[in-house]
Amino acid sequence: MKCKKVHKKLIFYLEGDLPEKEAGEVAAHLAQCVDCTAFANDMKRTLGVLQIEKSPEVNPYFYTRLKARMENRETAPKQIIGYPVWKKVLQPALFSVLLLAGVYTGFKIGGMANAEQSAQAYAETELVPFLNEMESEPIETFLME
């Protein structure tokens, strides 16, 4: 039997599902092939995990929790009508609209504040009066005082 054929039958061999003749052939191959034996051992260990996991410990508080849950369900107020619809459809839609509105407002504000224009306006309205004192306080007024 060749390695490839053995690989295809290995899990069935390990599980004891193969007919006697085929199982014998696989066993004979494993006895002389190191590579296939290594794979067989590896698979045996991995499948062995199933046996370890088989019976998880029984939780002693299982019934108490179950009863508490049943009582909670009975006393819990009924959900708001249409709540899943609100949560699944309207909520994302509302967030999308808000996001789009935010982006739109951002563009609008950004468009208004042109860098060149705003710098010029700032210089005219805020800086010029201080630099050009003559404009704010003519010489006549100064001499009169």
Partner: peptide, 13 residues
């Protein structure tokens, strides 16, 4: 199921 598992385990090996 066993065949598929074997394939996956061999690939991983």
């Amino acid at each position: 199921a066993k065949k598929n598992l074997q394939k996956k385990l061999y690939y991983c090996y």
